[in-house]
């Protein structure tokens, strides 16, 4: 017993180091698995407050650019609205599929990150605006990510530039679907895999979300095909997708709530049992 106590006293700094190192390693491993960063995240009162404050200043520098972006979006929406009234022909417009099952909440990015391998974005809406885990987040141009953690007034978003994020996507012209992920190389490109070899892929094709999960509706734009080749087994395409979004310059975002999500979940769970 005496020896054990002596050992602990002699090596107390090493033991403290070992303990703290293992604790931080634990946090690290937790953060590398999807939806598991429980304690250490920026959606809390203190860090959210600091970022909100600093964002209040830095907002002004991008005002002009953001105004132009919003104006462009208004422009597209207006043209959709007026054109759909006049021409009720067979032209298919994706936005008509966004029916009432999806509720949109607007928000703002208060901290963006894109240079790490697992990027997380902080937004200024939280539980007070009825946000919850697994809501989708998009911008006027395209897909952005999925909500991971919420606090009263902030939420963290797992960006598509995160190696743990997986989102179902498809070709716009056909219904061949696959999974998008990120290989951590460039914030401009993401990877779309599991598209069957039979799909007619051409460089420049548009990629949209497939609506196969309860998070995103079908038809949210993702990007265009920049490059593609067959995988080693020659069964599936590995497609490099150039994003519509400039992930390094984000300000206004829209959060999508699927009001039927719980119904869908219970339905799927019952089937699995």
């Amino acid at each position: 017993m005496q020896q054990i106590v002596n050992f602990i006293i002699r090596n107390k700094s090493f033991l403290l180091f070992l303990f703290l190192f293992l604790v931080s390693l634990g946090f690290t491993i937790q953060s590398h698995s999807f939806h598991k960063s429980k304690f250490v995240n920026s959606a809390n009162f203190l860090t959210g407050g600091v970022y909100t404050m600093s964002n209040n200043f830095s907002d002004y520098f991008g005002l002009k650019q953001q105004n132009i972006l919003l104006q462009e979006e208004n422009n597209t929406l207006k043209s959709l609205l007026y054109n759909s009234k006049n021409t009720k022909d067979s032209v298919f417009i994706d936005s008509t599929r966004f029916n009432k099952t999806y509720r949109f909440i607007s928000g703002q990015v208060i901290r963006n990150s894109y240079s790490k391998t697992n990027n997380v974005i902080l937004i200024n809406k939280g539980e007070a605006d009825s946000l919850d885990q697994d809501f989708g987040v998009i911008t006027s141009k395209g897909i952005l990510g999925i909500i991971e953690k919420t606090s009263a007034h902030n939420a963290t978003v797992l960006s598509i530039l995160n190696t743990t994020t997986r989102i179902s996507a498809q070709l716009k012209k056909t219904n061949h679907f696959g999974t998008i992920s990120w290989n951590a190389k460039s914030p401009k490109y993401i990877q779309l895999t599991e598209i069957p070899q039979i799909a007619p892929v051409i460089i420049g094709d548009t990629i949209i979300t497939s609506g196969r999960s309860a998070i995103f509706p079908k038809g949210v734009p993702v990007g265009t095909v920049a490059n593609f080749n067959l995988d080693t087994a020659e069964n599936y395409y590995e497609i490099t997708v150039e994003l519509f979004n400039d992930m390094t310059d984000l300000e206004h975002v829209y959060i999508i709530e699927n009001t039927n999500k719980n119904t869908l979940k219970t339905l799927l769970n019952n089937r699995d049992d």
């Binding site: 190192f21 931080s24 946090f27 953060s31 250490v40 995240n41 860090t47 970022y51 697992n118």
Partner: peptide, 14 residues
């Protein structure tokens, strides 16, 4: 906590 990096800064600092 600020940068949402899990525990990597803590591990390297320790």
């Amino acid at each position: 906590m600020f940068l949402d990096t899990g525990g990597i800064n803590a591990a390297a600092s320790v």
